[in-house]
């Protein structure tokens, strides 16, 4: 284990005592060291190139798999609502619609709640409780999505069906727009329930990133604001938030990326129906849920290929969202570094 160190010290000692005899072995040792060093350098470089290859591999494999479907349907694939395995006519509009709507519902709830939790954790919470509460919320982020799924199917969806959805339907029955949004029989499962479960899943992400970002605000800024008589809320609203805006938006985008690609939690409660409905209570589908539900049962190359094409679309959307998120978080880091 310590052979390298011994080599180096031996070389040094020998070099001091017997220069002529040592010079040959010294050169040999040095050559060996240089060789291991360059091998190690090459290995690490190769591994980081492998990470690059991995992402390119994902893109190439998806494009290759999606090619038959995209070749058959062309750009119309994106705007076609029909999904008929029997006649082999496929369109991505319904899953794309479902993905966007459920993620939108999730962000609508998770963003304000997450921000307020982060506000509580950084400004209001007693020091003693900060760490435990922060850890608890991060643990929520670690629970696998299948747990949210099974909980959503057996506990949350029945609850929605019995109590929440009838209440919404009755309350908004005579309000113009809302009556269409919350219409139809209360199935329990559907877009609305899926969006709510996604909100619970995304909440810890938004919270923990916002908290980290808020913690990075220089105390001097906050102290100055308190010094001129600002209230806690005003310090947060007019000093902390503007200072961290870029980072907070980056955090939202990360959460959005997770909501868009989330599979299991949604698959359990979305209902897997390939049609677009104005009512949020109607069953729908998302890109990831369609793939999870149908891929192993897909017969025929075109069917499989259409599902891979859905995956390609999902990857493209999340890639854009995540790239924006990383760019924004990077900008905040640079701003902090100045």
């Amino acid at each position: 284990m310590a052979s390298g160190e011994r080599d180096v010290s031996e070389v040094a000692l020998k070099g001091a005592s017997a220069p002529a005899a040592a010079s040959a072995s010294r050169a040999a040792v040095l050559r060996r060291l240089r060789l291991t060093d360059s091998i190690f350098h090459g290995l690490t470089r190769g591994a980081s190139l492998a990470v690059l290859a991995l992402l390119s591999g994902v893109i190439i494999a998806l494009i290759y798999g999606a090619a038959p479907a995209l070749g058959t349907f062309g750009f119309g694939f994106l705007f076609d609502e029909s999904w008929n395995p029997v006649t082999e006519r496929f369109g991505a509009l319904a899953p794309i619609f479902g993905t966007l709507v459920t993620s939108f519902i999730a962000m609508l709830i998770a963003v304000p709640v997450g921000l307020m939790v982060a506000f509580f954790l950084t400004e209001l919470c007693p020091m003693m409780l900060r760490r435990p509460i922060g850890i608890a919320i991060e643990l929520l982020a670690g629970i696998p999505s299948i747990i949210y799924g099974i909980w959503g199917l057996f506990v949350f969806a029945p609850f929605m069906q019995q109590y929440v959805q009838p209440l919404f339907i009755d309350t908004f029955a005579n309000v113009p727009v809302l009556s269409t949004l919350f219409a139809g029989p209360p199935y329990g499962i559907g877009m609305f329930t899926a969006g709510l479960i996604l909100a619970i899943m995304v909440l810890p992400f938004v919270t923990s990133i916002s908290r980290d970002v808020f913690d990075a605000v220089p105390p001097v800024l906050k102290e100055a604001a308190y010094g001129v008589g600002c209230t806690t809320w005003e310090v947060f609203r007019y000093v902390v938030l503007p200072f961290t805006r870029v980072g907070v938006i980056g955090g939202f985008m990360l959460g959005l990326g997770r909501a868009l690609g989330e599979t299991m939690a949604v698959t359990f409660v979305i209902g897997n129906a390939h049609h677009i409905s104005a009512s949020l209570f109607a069953p729908g589908t998302t890109i990831s849920a369609s793939i999870a539900n149908e891929f192993t049962e897909a017969v025929g190359d075109l069917y499989t290929s259409a599902l891979v094409a859905l995956g390609l679309i999902l990857f493209f959307i999340t890639f854009c969202v995540l790239a924006i998120a990383r760019y924004m978080l990077m900008r905040l880091q640079q701003q902090g570094g100045k």
Binding site: L55, G65, L254, G261, F295, G311, T318, A323
Partner: peptide, 15 residues
Amino acid sequence: NDILLSAPSIVIGLF
């Protein structure tokens, strides 16, 4: 790597 870190896992399955 950051993109891969949060890429949808179902896409990895397809890959």
